[in-house]
Amino acid sequence: MTARGARARPRGSPCVVLPYAVADGARNMAVDEAMLELAAAGSTLLRFYGWEPWCLSLGRHQRAPDRLLGRSPDDLRPGVDAVRRPTGGRSVFHGPEITYAFACPARAWGGPRAVLHAVHRALAEGLRALGVPLDEVGSDGAEASFAEAARISAASCFRDPAPGELTARGRKLVGSAQCRRHGGLLQHGSILLEDRQRLGDLDGREFGPDERPGAGVSGKGPAIGLNELLDPVPGRHLIVECLADTVARAFDTPAVDEANASAGIATSPVLIRLAARHERVHRSGAWLWRR
């Protein structure tokens, strides 16, 4: 029997690495929810992905601003994509970025706080290997600061870097959020390639199709992208390969491509079936506009 508070580390259980993919907001969140469901059943999964079209995501309990509406209460304005995350916290504008999602049993590897720190340390290791000049990652008070940063407001998630998060030049590079459900833990977050996060602020901004080219790039805000830190920025697949390796090693698990995963882990048909069910919810106005 494991002593209370001791880490339960299922060494050797494989971390299934899903292939990099690009999708719209509803599908991306549906796949993350499917990962969470599989994690509750004992699987450990990791994926990196992108967004097309670019998308505003709201935290689970965040109020959706009325100005996102189209002609009816169930429609978005033309040219706008928005989604509600299963995780809490504040809004994020998903544009030029690489998003990660890590799902595992909630009681594995020391629990949610330990997973939060382990993923951040692993991402930091991978980013430094690519040449990113990250600030030192502190841990003192990180749990309280993480909760503080997740308070709901009209400001973007990237407006407030917190101790324990990944920053460069004092500005936030990676934003993360967690949720637990039925014994599963999901942590996902954005690794910015460029800073467009002023488009994630809900305090008076208008959202529309003409904001994409060059919008939101100030180089002076609280967020920072890899384009300000590396010249040239490595290709996405090189970044993903490096980060996937460091995350899997951080949890002492062999990384296994989904195509090579055993039938008992997580295969495409299972993931697709679960994601399809969650996608119907994420495409519904009732979920997006809930108060």
Rank of each mutant, 00 (worst) to 15 (best):
147 A>L: 15
199 L>T: 00
231 D>A: 15
109 W>D: 00
59 G>A: 06
120 H>K: 10
222 P>M: 09
155 A>Y: 04
158 F>L: 15
214 G>V: 00
72 S>T: 08
70 G>N: 07
123 L>S: 01
223 A>M: 13
12 G>Q: 04
12 G>S: 01
68 L>H: 08
238 L>Q: 15
4 R>L: 14
224 I>K: 02
202 L>G: 00
49 Y>L: 02
76 L>G: 04
209 P>V: 02
71 R>C: 03
45 L>Y: 02
232 P>I: 11
158 F>C: 05
83 V>N: 03
40 A>C: 04
219 G>P: 05
18 L>E: 08
236 R>W: 12
102 F>S: 00
62 Q>A: 08
271 L>D: 13
160 D>N: 14
274 L>Y: 13
167 T>F: 00
155 A>R: 14
62 Q>V: 07
278 H>T: 11
118 A>F: 09
275 A>Q: 11
198 R>M: 03
195 D>H: 03
206 E>I: 11
118 A>Y: 05
48 F>C: 10
192 L>Q: 09
236 R>F: 05
192 L>K: 12
232 P>V: 06
90 R>A: 11
15 C>F: 04
289 W>C: 03
165 E>P: 05
156 S>M: 02
234 P>M: 02
40 A>V: 00
162 A>W: 01
136 E>D: 14
276 A>H: 15
130 L>K: 11
168 A>L: 02
146 F>V: 13
132 V>A: 08
126 G>Y: 05
106 A>L: 08
97 E>F: 03
91 S>R: 09
189 G>R: 08
246 T>S: 14
287 W>Q: 12
51 W>C: 06
175 G>K: 09
15 C>I: 04
49 Y>W: 12
178 Q>A: 03
149 A>K: 14
277 R>K: 15
241 E>P: 00
142 A>V: 09
254 P>S: 06
95 G>R: 10
229 L>K: 11
143 E>H: 15
235 G>V: 10
57 S>C: 01
181 R>G: 01
195 D>S: 10
2 T>A: 11
218 S>V: 14
190 S>R: 07
189 G>A: 13
53 P>T: 11
216 G>K: 07
1 M>C: 13
273 R>G: 15
76 L>E: 03
31 V>Y: 10
13 S>R: 15
154 A>K: 13
67 R>Q: 12
127 L>Y: 06
239 I>H: 05
124 A>T: 04
146 F>T: 08
102 F>H: 05
99 T>N: 06
232 P>S: 05
137 V>W: 05
112 P>T: 09
238 L>V: 14
281 V>A: 10
86 P>G: 12
93 F>D: 00
98 I>D: 04
202 L>W: 07
227 N>P: 00
270 V>G: 03
63 R>M: 10
39 A>Q: 00
40 A>Y: 11
164 G>Q: 06
176 S>R: 10
90 R>V: 00
45 L>R: 01
185 L>C: 02
172 K>Y: 02
243 L>S: 05
228 E>V: 01
262 S>T: 13
105 P>W: 06
16 V>E: 02
11 R>A: 11
